[in-house]
Every structure is written in structure tokens, then in C-alpha cells.
């Protein structure tokens, strides 16, 4: 409907990957940062998949009812906190296994999300405002790739903030101590259970904000299939990133870009092997897992007491 848009040819792949990285990375970024915080404290939360889903459904519903997408994000964070707190409480009961509790949360939470999601008949909720950095360009592809969600910048800032907290603050030290050696931490007078509870709760809030991105920007609808395993992928991504928030950021960008590879190659006329290209984020995960894991040594950066009481 505008004037004839310029096409970018092969540069289109680079633009598509960069654009895809900035759009598609956001859920991975928030979930992996949340999971990074959780695991640094020594706990595993597989329920991130469903916190992402509940965040998505809550943000959509609240944005639709109140007309304010930012209230939607806030409400999603609160729901994420509640689910995180529930997981924290569950996994601190004697002889409750983190992984089993996480799987139970996935089943419970997806039922809950679908139950609330049924009520939404509105096709779209008010979307988050975007930051337009591409108005200098005449190419539609570049303009569109550079319309960036504010959550993208918040996510980057969070990754660096989290790194600073882990390395420079006493609470960060307590989180790491709780995750590496809870016995020693207790001996130092740290209330390990409380530190972990707070870490898991905040982690849940972060993951749910990632869900808000799904319904309030990209793709911008509510659908039961909206999370599509991204929450679980992000948990794997934390291992990939060796429990470093800044590496989580890089890994999330890589995954977001990889997600755009299959569709953009096809739209450029590379018609074969699309199943292979579409699978590239998963192949990437497998490849890095194989490269970084050996049975002989502990993973670099892995919290010493991960998954233990």
C-alpha cells in the first residue's frame, strides 16, 4: 500500500537474522535470565515453560481489559512471581525433587493457562509501543527490523545488572554460596532457604515477562501453542551459557536469529531442506550440548549443589 518497497536480495538474510534476533530472542532472554538466577541459587525450575505461558495469557487478558499493555506486563510479572513462589515452596519440602515438581507445574500450569485463555474472544490486545530506530532507511525490511520492543533493551540491561549482582553485591554472593555449597552457606549464617525462595520468585517474574512479549508484540496473539517449547529451550540455554547472565544474553540472540533462518532462506528462494533449516535452533542446542558436556568433568560454571537440598 506504500510505494514500491525496496528489496534487499541476499542482504535480506542478514537483515532477517538481525531482526529475528531482536524479536525472537526476547522470550529466551527473559526465561534464561530467570532460570540463571534460579539455578545459581541451586534450584532447577523446569516449570519455566508454563510460567512463560501464564505470563502470555495474563498479559494478553490484562492488556485487553485495561487497555494498557504495560499493566499487562506488570500483571504477568506478578503471576510469574506467584508461580515461582509456589515452585520454591514445593521444592523446599523434604524429599521433593526439583525436576519432578517442575514437570508437575508444567501440567498444572498449562491447564490453568488454557482455562483462562478460553475466555479471550478478542483477536488482539493493545500491543506494547515500539522504539523506532530505522526511520533513516528507505528499505521496508530495515525499518521493520529496527522497530524494537522496549523489552529487548530491558532484557539487555537485566543481563548486565544480574552479572553485576552476582559479582559485586553481597546478596549475589549469598545466592552463589547457596547454589555452590548450601552447608557452608548455612555455617556462615546465610538463610539458604530464604535466599533460594527469593531467587526462584524473581526468576519466575522474569520468565513471565518473556511471555508478555509473545502476546503483546511478536507474534502478538494468544494461542495455546504460543510458547511452543521456548521455555524449555531457554532452560537448556542456561547450561549452554554456563550459568553466566551475559552469555545467556548472547545465546538468546543466537537462538532468536536461528529461528528466523528457515523462513528467511525460503522467502529468498532456497526451497529445499526447509525442515533442516527450521530445526536449526534445536540442532544448535544439541551441538553445543555435545561440545560442552563430557562425562569426566563437571560443566564449567555449574553451581555445585544444583538440584540438591
Amino acid at each position: 500500500m506504500q510505494s514500491q518497497p525496496e528489496t534487499l536480495g541476499l542482504w535480506g538474510i542478514a537483515v532477517a537474522l538481525a531482526g529475528g534476533a531482536m524479536r525472537g530472542s526476547i522470550p529466551y532472554m527473559f526465561v534464561s535470565l530467570g532460570e540463571c538466577l534460579t539455578e545459581k541459587s541451586g534450584k532447577i525450575n523446569l516449570g519455566m515453560e508454563v510460567i512463560l505461558l501464564m505470563g502470555a495469557v495474563t498479559a494478553f487478558g490484562v492488556s485487553d481489559v485495561t487497555g494498557s499493555p504495560w499493566l499487562g506486563v506488570l500483571a504477568a510479572a506478578l503471576v510469574g512471581m506467584t508461580l515461582g513462589a509456589l515452585h520454591a515452596w514445593l521444592t523446599q519440602q523434604p524429599s521433593v525433587n526439583d525436576v519432578a515438581a517442575g514437570i508437575a507445574m508444567i501440567i498444572f500450569g498449562s491447564g490453568l493457562a488454557f482455562f483462562f485463555g478460553k475466555r479471550f474472544v478478542a483477536p488482539m490486545a493493545p500491543q506494547l509501543p515500539l522504539i523506532d530506530l530505522g526511520s533513516w532507511s528507505s528499505a521496508g525490511a530495515i525499518r521493520s527490523a529496527l522497530r524494537i520492543s522496549p523489552l529487548f533493551f530491558i532484557g539487555i540491561a537485566l543481563a548486565f545488572a544480574l552479572h553485576w549482582i552476582f559479582t559485586r553485591t553481597s546478596w549475589g554472593l549469598k545466592v552463589r554460596a547457596a547454589g555452590d555449597d548450601p552447608q557452608a552457606a548455612r555455617a556462615l549464617g546465610i538463610n539458604v532457604n530464604r535466599v533460594r525462595f527469593i531467587a526462584i520468585t524473581i526468576g519466575g517474574a522474569l520468565a513471565a515477562i518473556g511471555g508478555a512479549h509473545l502476546t503483546l508484540y511478536f507474534p502478538g496473539i494468544w494461542s495455546e501453542g504460543i510458547s511452543g517449547g521456548q521455555g524449555l529451550m531457554a532452560v537448556a540455554l542456561v547450561i549452554f551459557a554456563q550459568w553466566s547472565p551475559r552469555r545467556c544474553l548472547a545465546a538468546a540472540l543466537l537462538f532468536g536469529g536461528a529461528q528466523a533462518l528457515g523462513p528467511s532462506l525460503q522467502s529468498l528462494g532456497v526451497n529445499g531442506y526447509y525442515h533442516l533449516f527450521n530445526a536449526s535452533p534445536y540442532l544448535l542446542t544439541l551441538g553445543v550440548m555435545i561440545a560442552t558436556c563430557t562425562p569426566h568433568r563437571r560443566l564449567a560454571g555449574m553451581p555445585g549443589a544444583l538440584g540438591r537440598k
Partner: peptide, 26 residues
């Protein structure tokens, strides 16, 4: 121009596919 996503309900990939088609001047 056809882009196959691989399954019936993949909202994120469908959005990504639509976006790359738009980038190509469709």
C-alpha cells in the same frame, strides 16, 4: 512465493515467515 513452516500451529514461526516475505517486497 511459498514458505512452509512444517506444522499446523506454530505462531512464532508463522510470524517470522510472514515478516521475511514482507522483507522481500511481497
Amino acid at each position: 512465493k511459498v514458505v512452509f513452516t512444517g506444522d499446523w500451529v506454530l505462531p512464532v514461526r508463522e510470524a517470522e515467515a510472514s515478516s521475511s516475505l514482507a522483507d522481500q517486497g511481497i
